[in-house]
Design a protein around this nucleic acid. Structure first.
Lengths: 336, 336
DNA sequence: AAATTGCGCTAAAAGGTTTTATTTACTAAT
DNA sequence: ATTAGTAAATAAAACCTTTTAGCGCAATTT
């Protein structure tokens, strides 16, 4: 890590032109008909002195930065944290880097971040879009910069997308509760227009319809504090004398569990959307709808890379199956 | 987000030189004695057309990228995830961006990452160093690029550092267990030379000495699988008939809890280092030594920024106090 | 014999800034 | 009348690459 060595230093040392070195270094030796002897000589020398091109100069010239922008809801939520980790290591193998930021579901912050990343000329985006981000995403597309959405999408905007089968996941979870003979099954969700929430809600409702059961739905404000969430959940559960619950996110489920502890009521049977370390450890352990995190990450990257290489034209929407991990919290109900 | 507008476009439109515009945009109007009238004219025009300089060109010229490298152990661990989130938002306010990567305690990967970031000319580093990274960090320092370590450091290398008071944290935790009348108190740690582990270990031993108790220490391989960790913990706890435990990391504690579930033994009184959602929710809830995450993040950034501005010369080592959060898992022992 | 093609390589432009060194047009001092 | 000094602005170099267009020569084709 001493004084930086330049491509011109190499050219000078070998008595050839900078152009030739550049061609060789960019795998264009064949194409540009550089002799094999010279190619080898250059490559050997480059390796010997450990030359690394200045990425900034490269980017300035080519317009490509090899940096991808990852805009996620919250890096400290293990669901997103895990996806971020997987994406990061996948992308790394391909020579790309990630710049990331959390939006905490704040549209304005998301817009700012995207603008910022755009100004920094990231090559592409992976975004968990918050409500109201549709226009911004559209603008990116119009600027011809690849965007892949995940976790949720905009129904009226043709975009690449990778996500889980939220409808089926919620449907299966709810059906499972019905089969276990629960009769008063509630659904906890957010005040949000995000597609994943709607789909989970629809899955719940469909299953309830199929079993001819009355539905109970409680929505929580997205910006509600933990205490507010806990209180409204307590009321929802107790006042409706629910005997089972489906939570549309892992942190809502955690708020529910905290509430049962704080207000000292018995938590009914429950299922959470998205797994979490907590759920395996609790007594009883919590049944979850688990998203295929690894597949999601892999496909996000694959699609984005294909797009960056211009190898696909039509938008791809990928919906991956969830897995219902049945644990102790949904044992069959003993009819009294 | 249309066609990019350049500084030369502005100069042309206003009939002045590029230099003048650049001076004005970089707050050097006064210094370079540009007339106020012209300064205002340029600023107004720039605002009107929404010109944003090309950051790449800027970086190429100045050698500064306004990007910081964050090298952490594991982004999916909430302790690091939370710190990352806080760092990210602090740094963002100051016009810097973060590129991050997880090392998973793999030295070779860490070295590669640092080299990579160095090649991309990040302006500074925040690093949770893994064993064996000392030379690399030294090289960075010699290249005059600011580095702040956190969570652990190298005793033989003068570096900026921010971390928690691990010794005192472990000491207080262990003392608490002693005061609660536990008699066979074990300590679970990692095979690692990292300072934070050593300090925690010393805190434990010191407290045990003070109370004239026999110590029990179990180390787990850093790359051990979850199953391996669980098995060795089971043996450690059961064979020594321990009645209390201090875990040196949150994930070791979680492995312990999983073990007690899997092998069906009763978990003794316990304390974990670093809080986690799980610990508040379990029955009984788990007493923890909690690190001051917010202060750590703030100080990391502050020190790094000061260094970037060349405002400090002497290295700063900041050790922040931990807090013992007493919960149900360490109720006073009932002597039989 | 003249024109074309192929080979192996290179000079110079382009990418968009910042910064150094200079110019120009004055006013004030000798 | 010359010199010195200053305010206001600028031309050109520098940062380090990639890429376009083309050069000089020999071999082949017309």
């Amino acid at each position: 890590m001493k004084k930086r060595i330049l491509i011109s230093d190499i050219a000078k040392a070998l008595g050839i032109s900078v152009t030739t070195v550049s061609f060789i270094l960019n795998d264009k030796a064949k194409e540009k008909r550089i002799s094999e002897a010279l190619t080898k000589r250059v490559l050997d020398y480059v390796k010997k002195v450990g030359y690394k091109p200045n990425e900034l100069a490269k980017s300035l010239r080519t317009g490509k930065t090899k940096i991808l922008g990852l805009i996620i809801e919250d890096i400290s939520n293990p669901f997103f944290g895990n996806i971020a980790r997987l994406i990061e290591s996948k992308v790394y193998e391909q020579g790309y880097r990630i710049i990331y930021c959390s939006t905490n579901n704040d549209v304005e912050k998301a817009k700012e971040l995207i603008q910022m990343f755009y100004d920094r000329q990231v090559d592409g985006f992976i975004i968990t879009p918050s409500d109201g981000l549709e226009d911004t995403v559209k603008q990116l597309q119009q600027s011809n910069i690849p965007v892949v959405l995940f976790d949720r999408y905009f129904p009226n905007l043709e975009t690449d997308y990778v996500g889980a089968d939220n409808f089926q996941g919620a449907f299966d979870a709810t059906s499972h509760l019905c089969q276990q003979a629960y009769k008063r099954i509630g659904f906890v969700s957010l005040y949000s227009d995000q597609t994943q929430m709607k789909e989970r809600s629809e899955g719940y409702l469909k299953a309830m319809d199929n079993h001819k059961q009355q539905s109970f739905i409680q929505k929580v404000q997205m910006d509600a504090s933990d205490d507010e969430a806990m209180e409204s959940l307590k009321d929802f559960i107790c006042e409706n004398r629910l005997d089972a619950l489906l939570f549309s996110t892992n942190y809502l489920a955690i708020s529910g569990l905290k509430a049962s502890k704080k207000y000292n009521f018995v938590m009914p049977a429950m299922i959470a959307f998205d797994d979490h370390t907590v759920f395996k450890l609790l007594e009883p352990s919590i049944t979850v709808v688990s998203q295929p995190i690894k597949e999601i990450a892999e496909n996000l990257i694959n699609i984005l890379l294909l797009r960056l290489q211009g190898k696909i034209k039509a938008t791809r929407k990928l919906v991956l199956p969830c897995e219902l991990k049945i644990r102790e919290s949904t044992k069959a109900k003993v009819t009294l």
